[in-house]
Amino acid sequence: MFAPEGPTVRELAVQALSSVEHGYDLLAPKFDRTPFRTPRSVLAPVTRALRGMGPFERGLDLCCGTGAGFGVLAQVCRERPVGVDISAGMLTAGRTAHRSGADLVRGDALALPFGPAFDLVVSFGAFGHFLPRQRPALFAQVHSVLRPGGRFAFPVPAPARPGSRGYWAMLAFDGAMRVRNALWRPPFVMYYRGFRLGDVRSELARAGFDVELRALPELGERSDGSPRCRLLVATKAGPPR
């Protein structure tokens, strides 16, 4: 599951008993050698889909971590990518990896330090760190930093079928996290099963977005012919700048 240079079991245990911010500070030097980093097999189809909607001027990677999404923004945006994350450690690792290819800013996704300066916001794998009650505020923040006509895009995997191995794995993980957070402080928020597409679409609409889904055929189909993964594209009302 992990490369030989990746974190040890002890290091992962220490991270899991920390806050989200401090946990990622600890994991940052080895994060890119874990399966938690968004793989190229996902980034490439997202890039293709966004390229067909662009080009965009300025793009933001929300909760950027070490910058896996910067390659996507570099290909579909005319200006340098911008990334924002709450973990100073992850940003340090991102600056080392990307040198002068991106601008990295430390900030809270629930209080973004930008005005309406972006035409595209992307995010990869970060939504499990937000409780359902926090999502309306998160989406309102994204809406506030987009220019009219700007887009908020992120991949949405199809939910695991009840009874499948993936279903039981996510159920067990979320259950373990709830027990951990009931017994230990500070909490570490990371839940897989709370990000339900119907709820998310409604919340985005209430935040002022028009929402559509686009299949990512490179990631395959399920047995019923439906896509294994879609790109959700939320567009801020108003003509593009």
Results as ranks from 00 to 15, higher is better:
Pro136His: 01
Thr8Val: 14
Gln75Ser: 13
Asp210Met: 14
Gly54Thr: 05
Leu138Lys: 07
Gly198Phe: 07
Thr8Ile: 14
Met190Gln: 08
Pro4Lys: 14
Val14Ile: 14
Arg161Ser: 13
Ser19Met: 07
Glu79Leu: 15
Leu232Met: 08
Ala169Arg: 11
Gly69Asp: 02
Phe152His: 00
Arg33Ser: 14
Pro157Ser: 13
Arg40Trp: 12
Asp199Ile: 10
Arg99Gln: 15
His98Cys: 07
Pro187Leu: 13
Arg161Asn: 06
Cys229Leu: 14
Asp108Phe: 11
Asp119Tyr: 09
Arg241Gln: 11
Arg214Glu: 04
Val105Glu: 07
Leu73Gln: 02
Tyr167Ala: 11
Asp103Val: 13
Val189Gln: 03
Ser144Ile: 06
Leu219Ala: 09
Ala207Pro: 03
Gly125Ile: 09
Leu26Met: 13
Ala215Thr: 01
Lys30Leu: 12
Ala109Asp: 00
Phe56Glu: 05
Ser100Phe: 11
Arg178Phe: 10
Gly198Asp: 13
Gly220Trp: 14
Ala44Thr: 12
Arg196Ser: 01
Gly194Val: 11
Thr8Leu: 15
Glu11Asn: 08
Asp103Lys: 11
Val20Asn: 02
Pro239Val: 12
Leu27Cys: 00
Arg185Phe: 03
Gly125Pro: 03
Gln15Thr: 08
Gly54Arg: 09
Met90Lys: 07
Arg48Asp: 12
Thr92His: 14
Pro81His: 03
Gly208Asp: 04
Pro29Ile: 11
Gly6Val: 08
Gly150Gln: 00
Arg78Tyr: 08
Arg161Asp: 10
Ala74Tyr: 09
Ala44Met: 13
Phe209Ile: 02
Phe154Glu: 00
Ala160Cys: 12
Val156Trp: 04
Arg222Ile: 11
Leu231Trp: 00
Ala176Asn: 01
